[in-house]
Design a protein around this nucleic acid. Sequence first.
DNA 1: GGTGAGTATATTGCATTCAATGTTCAATGT
DNA 2: ACATTGAACATTGAATGCAATATACTCACC
Lengths: 223, 223
Amino acid sequence: MQHEWAVLEPTTLTERVYDVLRARIIEGDWGSGNFLREKEISGKLGVSRTPVREALARLAADGFLERIPHRGFKIPHNSANDLLDLYPILAALEVLAAAEGFKEMGKERLDALRSINESYRAAYALQDPKEGVRLNNQFHNLLTVDCTNPKLSQMILSLQAEVFRLECWALVNIHCWDVSIREHEELLNAIESSDYNEALKILEKNRSMTVHDFSNFTEKETD
Amino acid sequence: MQHEWAVLEPTTLTERVYDVLRARIIEGDWGSGNFLREKEISGKLGVSRTPVREALARLAADGFLERIPHRGFKIPHNSANDLLDLYPILAALEVLAAAEGFKEMGKERLDALRSINESYRAAYALQDPKEGVRLNNQFHNLLTVDCTNPKLSQMILSLQAEVFRLECWALVNIHCWDVSIREHEELLNAIESSDYNEALKILEKNRSMTVHDFSNFTEKETD
DNA sequence: GGTGAGTATATTGCATTCAATGTTCAATGT
DNA sequence: ACATTGAACATTGAATGCAATATACTCACC
C-alpha cells in the first residue's frame, strides 16, 4: 500500500493571526476592557493591519472580543453573569450532543475520561486552580467530541472555549471541585452501566453546579 | 418625562453591506453552491472590495456562507440534513429561552401569537408555502423574543434566520402544516392555563415535527 | 477653579495597489 | 484521441495610503 498523503489545507495569514490571538485571549493575556490595537499587533507579528483586522473581526463574531465601531476591539468585560448565561446553554447542548454518543462509548474512552478526572482530583489536592479549570474543560470536551451533528459540535466547541476563558479569569470562584469530581465519576459509572437517562441528568447538573455563590462577585475594572 | 432618545449607533459601510447581503441570502437570491464574487458585489453596491470582504467574512462566521481559502465565499449546499441538524438545537434552545418567558406572558402577546397563527392557517388554506414559512418563523421568533439571556437570545436569532433560509429553499417539503398550526394553538392554550411543562413539551415537539419524510430528499446541484 | 470651544493626535474605516493563488484553455508530445 | 504542460486570465489575499471619526489636550472665557 502507498503512503497516506496528508492533504495540504490551503491557509492564509488571517487564519494564523486568528489562532495566535485566540489562544492569547483565552489564556487571559489581556485584561478585560483593554483594547487590542491593530497597529500594535500587526507590528509585533510583522504583518500588515489587514489580516489582523480580519482576525479581530472573526474573534468578535465568535464572542471573544467586543467590537465598538470606530473605537476598536476590546476584551469583553468579564462578569459572573456571562458565565451564568453560558452554563445553561452549554448544559442543554452538551446533553443533546452526548445523548447519542453515550451509547457507543467504548472502554478506552471511559478510561481516558477517568484518567482526566483523576488528574482533576490531583489538581484539586494541589490547589492548582488553572490546571483544574483546564482539566474540567478537557473532560467535557472529550465527552462531547464525537458528536455527529457538525453544527452542534462546532457550537459546543466555541462555547467551551468561551467558558474556559471566563473560568480562567474567575479562578478563585470555581470552588466545590470535590462535588464536580464526584459528579464526573457518577456520570462515567452511569454510562458504564448503560443508565443513559441518569447520565444525562448528572451531566446537566454538573454543568450548572458552579453557578452558586457567584452572586456577590463583581468585576475589577481595568479601563 | 422627557422624550426617549434613541442612541445613534455609529455605523459603518461594512455593517450596511452585511445587512443587505444577509437579507438577500436569506431570501434565496443566490442558488446554493454559487460563489459570491467580491468584485461584482462591490461594483453593484458602489463601494470598494474591503467592506464587502468584511461583510462576507462575517456572514461566513454566522453560517450563512461557506468560505474556501483562495477561492471565495459560496452559498452552502442546502440539504435536508442541515435542517435536521438545526432543529434539535433550536428546539433545545427555544425551550430554554421560553422556560422563563412563558410565566410572564401577558394577554396582548398571546393575542399577537394567535393572530400570527391565524395568518399561518390562512396561508395554509391558500397553499402559500413561502408565506407559511415566514409566519411560522415569526411565531417562534415572538415566542422567544423576551429572553433575558442575551447570549442565548443572540444564538436563537441567528439559528432561526438560518432555518428560515433553508425552509424557504425546501418549501415543498414543509408539509404537515395542519399539525404545526394545531400544536401552536395547544401551546398557547397551555401557556394561558399556566401549564408550563406541557407548553415546553409541545414546543420541543413542534420544532422537531417537520423532520419526518425528509429522508429521501436530495439536492439539485447548481454549480 | 471649572467649563467649553478648538486643535492636535491617535486609531479605525475604506480605497487602491500589488502579490499570490487557483482556474481555464490552447499547444505540445505521446 | 488523450494526457500533460504552461501560459493567460480571474479572483482572492495582503500591504499601503488616505479619509473619517473619536479622544486628549490646550487655552481662552466665565
